[in-house]
Amino acid sequence: MPLVAQVFYFIIYLILQVVLVQKVVLFDVAFCFLYLGFLLMLPFEAGAIRLMLMGLLMGLCVDIFYNSLGIHAAASVFIMYLRPHAVSIIAPRGGYETWMTPKLKVMGFEWFSIYSLLLIFLHHLLLFFIEAGGFGNFFYTLLKVLASTAFTFMVIVIIQYLFYSARRSI
């Protein structure tokens, strides 16, 4: 993926997150962190170091708008560190081909949903418990994690169907 396209997608996802989705909270508990879509779409060949730096950058930008400096960054760096491991655990039979990208239309719904649900869940788990500052209100925070995981996943899947094609370039 060329650098220009990556910068473009970074900005688009960030603006959508802070202008549109930040205000949408369903049933008081389901938040949408759409910007994870950008981090999940980074190509397979990106190493853990590049992924983590992208996660940090995106996390910090989102944090500035959420007044939660460091929290989104910590959660994003965490899942970006785990991403290569997760990808290798859920590798399809025969491994990955060089032309593959982690998009829904390329990898299929089953692979994509395991991949993104796992990482989104871990991200939200860390995010909401750091934000709550501990395990007080444990079940309420857990409810937020689960509801938000479902919400974020749904929005990311819809965007995959609407805007991403199966072609090589992102």
Binding site: G70, A73, A74, V77, I130
Partner: peptide, 12 residues
């Protein structure tokens, strides 16, 4: 990873 997480914790 450890360094970045420490930075984040410091920021928080």
């Amino acid at each position: 990873f450890v360094v970045l997480e420490l930075v984040c914790v410091w920021l928080i």
